[in-house]
Amino acid sequence: MRSLRQLGLSLERIRSALSRSDSLRPIFEAQLAALTTQARQVETLRSRIAALLDGHTAESLLSTLELMSVYESYFTADQLADLRSRAAELGTEAVEGLKASWLELVGQLRRHMADGTPATDPRVAELSRRWDALGAKFTGGDPAIQAAAQRSWEENRSAISTQIEWPEDDGLVDYVNQARAAR
């Protein structure tokens, strides 16, 4: 009984197993599955903490943690894993290249907004297509992930804007949505 207790089984489960004539195998299989799940959760947490510590200040750590909490309430664990996996597959250099392309695209769209170019203008429509294509590189074109990202943005503009250094009320996302609807 002591050796079963050392395997993490509760006294109640041990008592129940010993009172039956069936095998302990199903209990050990269930215990192994629970420990495997727990090990994955610990590894995910370890990876997150390591990534947070990599080059962050105390202030940016808190901001990043806040944003992670926002994301976790909109994306499923599988979707977050998919996003992380896609970023890892792309590699740091490609991700940085996509970010640079994104910033260039944002600059072009903001210039059109400042110039009063209607969202229905073909040039803006083309930029909105590029916006969607860049987004698909990160989301894999998964409609559920795209919808979660949209909901997250709509409900948390302030927190997200602060984290990515984006002016909160500049209307750019609405402008792109209008261009998208017009194409």
Rank of each mutant, 00 (worst) to 15 (best):
E93F: 08
G135A: 10
M68C: 10
Q31K: 06
R13S: 13
A148V: 03
A39W: 05
W102L: 00
L53P: 01
M113F: 00
Q41Y: 07
T117L: 09
T44N: 07
D132Q: 12
L53H: 06
L24K: 01
A77V: 08
V95F: 06
L127G: 04
S69V: 08
Q163N: 10
S73G: 13
D132R: 14
R180T: 15
L45K: 07
A81E: 14
G55F: 03
E72S: 14
A182D: 04
E154I: 03
A34K: 09
R130G: 03
S161C: 08
V42F: 07
A114F: 08
D82T: 12
E12F: 08
H56Q: 15
A58F: 06
R130I: 05
K137R: 10
W131Q: 02
W166Y: 13
R110S: 08
A182T: 01
E96V: 04
R86S: 00
A147F: 10
R13F: 06
I145Q: 09
L7H: 11
T44W: 04
A81R: 13
T44K: 14
D82V: 08
D170R: 08
G140F: 01
D121Q: 11
Q108D: 15
Q146P: 01
E104S: 15
L127W: 02
S152R: 05
T92F: 09
L103S: 15
G135F: 05
R130H: 05
A114C: 05
T64N: 08
R46W: 13
S19C: 06
S23D: 09
V124S: 01
V173W: 13
G107Q: 15
E72W: 09
L18V: 09
R110F: 07
Q178N: 13
R157N: 04
Q41M: 13
W153N: 01
L52Y: 09
Q79Y: 06
L45F: 15
L83D: 01
R40S: 04
E66K: 00
E96N: 13
R130T: 10
D169T: 09
R151L: 11
D115N: 15
L52I: 11
Q31F: 01
Q178M: 14
S128P: 03
W166T: 05
S3L: 14
L4A: 12
A81T: 09
G91F: 00
L52W: 08
T64I: 00
R111Y: 11
G55Y: 03
A159E: 07
L62I: 09
V106E: 15
E154G: 06
D115G: 11
L80V: 09
L11R: 12
L11D: 13
S47P: 02
E43R: 12
L45P: 01
S158W: 07
S60W: 07
D169V: 04
L7G: 06
Q178F: 05
L45H: 09
D78Q: 12
A33K: 05
L98W: 01
R130K: 08
G97H: 07
A88V: 08
S63D: 11
K99C: 07
R130V: 08
L53M: 12
Y71H: 09
L24Q: 00
R15D: 11
D54E: 11
I145F: 07
Y74C: 00
G141L: 01
P26S: 03
Q6E: 14
T36A: 10
E168C: 10
R130W: 02
P118R: 04
F28M: 12
T139F: 06
